[in-house]
Every structure is written in structure tokens, then in C-alpha cells.
């Protein structure tokens, strides 16, 4: 903590962050401000009109379905974040310690899967999960009734796709954090009488926290913007925020509305992150005062 405070007073250090500051300003803050300004305009005959009024915001706050979609997006994102975080912990641990002999191969496979075009992977899932797809075919051949798994084109399929596409983020950040833990610390816990599980809970897990948090934040932010999964795997019948925003911008050519909805989504996401951050900070402080 002391070091952090000091770094703020270091002039040279502040100067060295200038390029980043300029970059962030150019590519993040300015577009954000433009988006905000856009939301106070209107559209007439598929053209932007500089009206400077609150019509779009009145519309946003009077239409329940926007909020319904936002709420659905938020809950999906939270569930996805939880699943990705919880699943990544044993996977990352197993990769590092139980399957360490194949860890390079596993990492390679994951990177390949990760870099493969998301569209292709998502269509792959459609072929796999379809009522007449690979999964049901296999199940049928071992005695299950036809179309035993009817999950495609449902919110559950959206979730499967989201978790599948976002899980690598949490696995990588968690594994990175875990790999940095000194092996001796775990041995010290085992030596002090801890079972494997206990050593994991007492040492590995708390020390991997930064990576777990980083992964969770990353996945949460990314899952707020998912587009492909609800559309392709979810069958488009439960659209999420990104689809709503796309529709506003593209189909309805209503840029002010799209801008306003974008801001709503950003605010919701930032608020959730702020609450989570405050909780984590409060917990850490309580922990240190214990």
C-alpha cells in the first residue's frame, strides 16, 4: 500500500504513464463522450438530427422491454462469470499439478481452440447439440430415446456457448496466478498437517485470488457484450443487450437510441464491478484488521 501511494507522487512515473493516458483518452474516453452526446439527438428519415433533447432517454426509461433485456443480460453475465470462475479453478489446478506432464499440450490445444474463429466454434456447437446432432446421435446409439438432449435454441444453450467461449480467459488467468505460487508454500502447508484439499483451500486458493478476480472481471465484461451465442446457439428468441443495441443501430438506424442503450449497459456493468470491487476491498480490510 505504501508503495502504491508513493508511486503517485513520483513525477517521472507519472510522466511515463502519459502515452497510455493519451491512448486511453483517444480511444476510450472520447468515443464514450461522443456516445453520450449522441444519445441526446434524434433521427428523422434514417438520418441523425441534432435535436439536443431527452426524447431518446424518455423512450429508454419508458420501455420495459429494454430493461427486461438488460436484466436478462446482467443475470446471464453473472451466472456465466460464476460458472467460468468456478470451473477454471479445478481445471487450472489440474493442468498445473495433476496433468503437468501434458500441460504444454493442453495449453497448446486450448490456445488453438481459443484462436479458432468464434463463429466456426459456435456453429460446431449447433451441429453437436442439435436434436439430430452428434450428441443425440451418440446417446441414441447407447440406448437413450431419440433427441434426449433438447437444449439447442434455448437460454441454456446460450450459456453453454458463453461458458465455452469465455472459459479460457479464467483458466489462463487462474493458471497464471497459480503457477506463480511457490511450490514450497503448498509443501509447507502439507508439512504442517494439511491434507491436499486443505492445503489448496488455505494456500493455493487465497494466493491465486488476483488471477481469479482478473479472470472474473474479464469474463463479466465480455459476457455483457455476447452476441453470437444468444443469436446462434440461443436461437435468437432470448436476445441480449448486444443484439438490442445492434438492432437499434442497424435495423432501425436509430443511432441515438443505440448510443443510449450502450451507455445503460456500460453503467450497469461498471456499477456491478464497482460493487464487487468495494466488497473485495472491504473484505480485505476486515481480514487484515482481524
Amino acid at each position: 500500500m505504501a508503495e502504491m501511494q508513493k508511486s503517485w507522487r513520483d513525477g517521472a512515473l507519472r510522466l511515463s504513464t502519459l502515452p497510455l493516458l493519451v491512448l486511453m483518452g483517444l480511444f476510450f474516453v472520447i468515443p464514450l463522450i461522443m456516445t453520450a452526446l449522441l444519445s441526446f439527438q434524434g433521427t428523422q428519415y434514417y438520418r441523425l438530427v441534432w435535436t439536443w433533447d431527452l426524447n431518446v432517454w424518455t423512450d429508454v426509461f419508458s420501455q420495459i422491454h429494454y430493461w427486461k433485456i438488460m436484466w436478462r443480460t446482467l443475470t446471464m453475465a453473472l451466472v456465466c462469470t460464476l460458472l467460468c470462475t468456478v470451473l477454471a479453478i479445478p481445471i487450472a489446478y489440474g493442468m498445473l499439478h495433476r496433468l503437468s506432464r501434458w500441460s504444454d499440450q493442453i495449453t497448446l490445444l486450448m490456445v488453438f481452440a481459443f484462436l479458432t474463429d468464434a463463429v466456426l466454434k459456435t456453429f460446431g456447437w449447433v451441429l453437436f447439440l442439435d436434436r439430430s446432432g452428434v450428441l443425440n446421435g451418440t446417446l441414441e446409439s447407447i440406448g437413450f430415446p431419440p433427441a434426449a438432449v433438447n437444449v439447442l435454441f434455448s437460454p441454456n444453450a446460450t450459456m453453454i456457448g458463453m461458458v465455452y467461449n469465455l472459459l479460457p480467459y479464467t483458466i489462463f488467468t487462474t493458471a497464471l496466478s497459480m503457477a506463480r505460487i511457490d511450490r514450497d508454500l503448498v509443501l509447507a502447508a502439507r508439512d504442517a498437517g494439511a491434507t491436499r484439499l486443505r492445503a489448496f483451500v488455505e494456500v493455493t486458493l487465497p494466493l491465486a485470488k488476483p488471477g481469479i478476480w482478473a479472470g472474473a472481471v474479464l469474463v463479466f465484461v465480455l459476457s455483457l457484450g455476447v452476441f453470437l451465442e444468444p443469436k446462434v446457439m440461443g436461437g435468437g428468441t432470448s436476445p441480449l443487450a448486444a443484439e438490442l443495441i445492434r438492432q437499434s443501430f442497424e435495423t432501425r438506424v436509430n443511432w441515438p437510441l443505440g448510443a443510449a442503450l450502450t451507455l445503460v449497459l456500460i453503467v450497469i456493468g461498471a456499477a456491478v464491478l464497482a460493487v464487487a470491487g468495494a466488497l473485495a476491498f472491504w473484505q480485505a480490510r476486515r481480514g487484515s484488521n482481524d
Binding site: 456453429f123 435454441f153 446462434v232 435468437g236
Partner: peptide
């Protein structure tokens, strides 16, 4: 219509595949 709808798709190939296999 939405009551009876299985999927709202934006992509031609998903729609065509479903039409071919009867889903």
C-alpha cells in the same frame, strides 16, 4: 408467431440446415 417459433436466426446456413433435416 413467437409462441410456435423454435428459433429466430440471422444466418442463412443455420436456417437451411434446419429446413433440410426437418427440424
Amino acid at each position: 408467431l413467437f409462441k410456435n417459433t423454435r428459433a429466430v436466426v440471422g444466418d442463412l446456413s443455420v436456417a437451411q440446415k434446419g429446413l433440410m433435416d426437418g427440424s
